[in-house]
Nucleic acid binder design. Structure first.
Lengths: 261, 261
DNA sequence: TGACTTATATGTACTATGCATATATGCTTG
DNA sequence: CAAGCATATATGCATAGTACATATAAGTCA
């Protein structure tokens, strides 16, 4: 260990340090999860946020989150937040990235594991109307000021088009969600998570276009999806559309499985 | 700091809970970083691990890691580990995933943010010989028992081909590294990180084939790389190869930038 | 019934890729 | 020093995927 380190504990051998480690003698950071609940509505990406009612960053908008309890996994903590703040369960939820700048929360050191969740807009609206589990949360529109997978923070605007201030580093978290969605879209079946069980190809294409922030070629999109065997036709047609109705499809999960923690 | 909480705090409103939150009254998990230092050598993926000398999982092999200090970022903690355990700095280092199963460490709750680092095998060998910063760490070979991006844990074997036992959930961490590398390889310039500054196309192809675990078409690989403008010819040729020498190229960083925390 | 709108199908040019073949070049060996 | 060797580099061609254009089908609505 040639590196000169500050006065910190005299660690000459890290293995010995780990063995002698006493949870009570060393300051621990707080650990939280923040969840970005994403949906697509009216050609826009939308996320659930709430204005802060207390001290740091009062009035600025922040993501639903919670500290991680000692007896739950990170995934369980994120599911708990999702259930408490949005009344949602059983939906797509995946770890995004862990944010840990020492000064990201002025009160104390808080490391947060960010998650993102995807849900059909209609289902979210139904649930939100049924119970008031939202606790002040609102769906706001995401404005992405960059193209492709360049990355960077995003802005949020309310339904009147006014820009809203964001708390902590939540603009970065939202930006990374968009970057991740754009990157995963063409190799992972995530578009389906934002639609009802049955949907038309046009609806799926609009989901993709909204996420990517650009238009797609209709024929190529059709052929690619139909050839992918990710979707199967139901034989049913959409109803009450004022023109020739399109066939309804449903998602057919691929055979290969993911494996994580 | 009490370990077991009496009754869970009466959380009816999460905002109020956050405001009333006192860092000292609530048990915090320990937070660590683990670093997977990856290199490619002799057609195999290799990673730096060390046998544990103490209590839990004594004798099993584990990744270099450290607890996160209160005044450093997660990236800084990972860099510190890399410098202390491998004598490496200024190399590619990126966050992988955060592992937090409550029982992943039998001593206490430890949440670990896993990083992976990529380095040229020759550079690693040079540095390792120069200083003995390794502290018991050894390069072991990764055996990947799955194809493509299917995912799953991996095995490690020593230079004699013997399988070695892994500590904690480190088999999962290593597996996710391989999965991530395979996924990123064809859209992110990571192959170059495993080569010296100047390299031949053949060398780069061997890096890709080792990571992907399958052979690639030589001509397609050539054309795709040359068309990508990620590499520029140096005009120099490789030396002492016993056959016609190939031209040496160097990596030319693309204009677009990444943006993270 | 016919106009309208969108879905669905077909055709064509272009591009990327896999595969095969031909040529170039530094090194090795007799 | 010349011939052979091994690999690099270049070229040609068939195939697959995609962008773009056009044609046909099928519901709705006046």
């Amino acid at each position: 260990m040639t590196r000169n380190r500050p006065a910190q504990p005299p660690v000459t051998d890290e293995q010995a340090f780990l063995a002698a480690y006493d949870a009570a003698q060393f300051p621990h950071p707080s650990v939280a999860v923040d969840v970005v609940l994403v949906t697509v509505e009216g050609g826009s990406l939308r996320a659930l946020l709430a204005p802060r009612t207390n001290h740091p960053h009062r009035g600025r908008w922040s993501l639903p989150g919670s500290f991680v309890r000692m007896d739950e996994s990170l995934d369980q903590a994120a599911q708990r937040v999702l259930a408490a703040k949005a009344g949602q369960s059983g939906i797509f939820l995946e770890q995004l990235y862990t944010f840990g700048r020492p000064d990201r929360d002025p009160r104390t050191r808080v490391i947060t594991i960010a998650y993102y969740a995807l849900v059909d807009a209609r289902r979210l609206a139904r649930r939100e109307a049924g119970s008031q589990a939202d606790a002040g949360g609102k769906l706001v529109t995401l404005e992405v000021p960059w193209q492709g997978e360049h990355g960077g923070p995003v802005r949020i605007v309310d339904d009147a088009g006014r820009s809203l201030p964001l708390a902590f580093d939540h603009a970065d978290i939202l930006g990374l969600v968009v970057q991740r969605l754009r990157g995963k879209l063409d190799y992972a079946p995530i578009g389906f998570e934002l639609l009802p069980r049955q949907f038309t190809l046009r609806q799926l294409q609009e989901i993709h276009e909204t996420i990517l922030g650009r238009t797609l070629n209709k024929d190529s999109f059709r052929r690619r999806l139909l050839a992918s065997e990710l979707i199967v036709p139901t034989g049913k047609l959409e109803q009450d559309v004022g023109h020739r109705p399109a066939e309804l499809y449903r998602f057919h999960k691929p055979a290969r499985s993911k494996h994580h923690e």
